[in-house]
Write a protein that binds this DNA or RNA. Structure first.
Lengths: 238, 238
DNA sequence: AGCTTAATCAAACGCTTGACTTAGTCAACC
DNA sequence: GGTTGACTAAGTCAAGCGTTTGATTAAGCT
């Protein structure tokens, strides 16, 4: 309350922040809905109710806008992931339980904060894009955080060979991204009895499932053993 | 050799077929590399060395071209999947071993036939697209084949509740599609020690891994049980 | 030889795209 | 009271877009 001269105490520069945010919101929505090539700047500014020049004023270019959309969500998301990881590392379980680590990774990316389903679909699109620019963008914002989770998983699974750990983390990313992308295949095949867009139900199944998958026996290097009649997994505890 | 009057006995209508195929090849490549919005008709015809009008003559529109690209690969692929499924159902193992069913589903989609990595990346892009048109396209070409595999899996896993089966099939699709899309995350995180673009190595790990995942205990409906110290999965049969 | 049909071409159509500019508005700060 | 930062309104620009046209060619049939 130091500066009493203000008549409007809510938000200095009411135009500045809201315009920027409205552009980011519209861009996030339309990029995720129609792709980066599919959504034009004109569509975005019309949806945001601002002028075309405002985009160039704030973000320089369309690519700059995409990066801003991405950074706005990713930075707090990575932060929350690491906080949750630190929390479960400091908890009474040492090393932390597998499902705690997995939850710390998945929750911030899939729940309502950090853009929710809209931003999630955008990330799925970028994962499928695989262009050089997109790869660099993702590497820049994801690498260090993901590496820390790989370390935590290795601690929790000391007997799992690195090769298995790596592949299974790859599959973790796969299930997360594909569930976020939600191409509608599983709904089509099961009369909507499975619904990946129900985030809570999705996570409630995905987390314990992935924990089981990580804990399963390592896959041996040798080509698939075909010992008949072994339809249940052999219980060789390391 | 019946019609001796022909001087060119190789392929009637040499223009028609080769032009069509060249357009399809170029479109498949450029669509998968740059997306459907990213690759323009002009880029495609330049790459194929044909005239712009040829695309509209053969396929009607850009969307028609995409559908033709899709159909050309998908139909033989679905056919091969069902053949392999029939083979392993007729084999000596009854019901067929899990990994045989999974192989029958994954192999035709990931190995060299049916477009290989190029077409695989296109499918991954379409999965992330999730527009109405794309969903319909995929539903039309995938639904019946996938439903048959769900049935086969249900036969092989009589004790697995339908809910678990559905989610796990969803995750199977996820790992397949994400591995095909190959966003480079796992290479970046592991100094290239994991390489999803090596199809053989990919499949050699993925098939037994997925078999284990399908065979793991069902996830109970109740919210995640947090009974401490149970770092290995509880062995509640059915 | 004459007619039909399929395949291909060069050229253009009307529109949209991302980028950028210029002139002007208007509240907030010094 | 002038300056500044954050825009708006309106437009320009070259490039590129998907699509269409009408002419041309080649092959097949009768």
């Amino acid at each position: 309350m130091a500066v009493a001269a203000h008549n409007a105490d809510v938000a200095i520069d009411p135009r500045g922040e809201s315009t920027r945010a409205r552009i980011l919101d519209s861009a996030e929505y339309l990029f995720s809905e129609q792709g980066m090539n599919g959504a034009s700047l004109r569509t975005i500014v019309a949806h945001a109710g601002v002028n075309t020049a405002a985009v160039h004023y704030h973000f320089g270019s369309k690519q700059g806008l995409l990066e801003a959309v991405f950074a706005r969500r990713i930075l707090p998301m990575a932060e929350e992931r690491l906080e949750l990881l630190a929390d479960c590392r400091a908890g009474e379980d040492r090393p932390p339980l597998l499902h705690q680590i997995i939850t710390a990774f998945l929750e911030p990316g899939m729940r309502g904060r950090h853009g929710g389903a809209t931003f999630a679909r955008l990330r799925a699109r970028m994962a499928a894009d695989a262009s050089d620019e997109t790869r660099k963008l993702m590497a820049h914002y994801f690498d260090s955080s993901s590496a820390k989770f790989l370390d935590a998983l290795a601690d929790a699974l000391p007997d799992l060979p690195a090769r298995d750990l790596h592949w299974r983390f790859h599959y973790l990313l796969a299930t997360m991204v594909y569930t976020m992308a939600n191409p509608g295949r599983i709904q089509a095949l099961t009369d909507n009895s499975c619904d990946p867009s129900d985030t809570d139900a999705s996570l409630a199944y995905l987390v314990p499932y992935l924990a089981q998958c990580f804990q399963a026996d390592p896959i041996s290097e040798a080509p698939v053993r075909l010992d008949r009649k072994t339809n249940t997994h052999n219980s060789s505890t390391n």
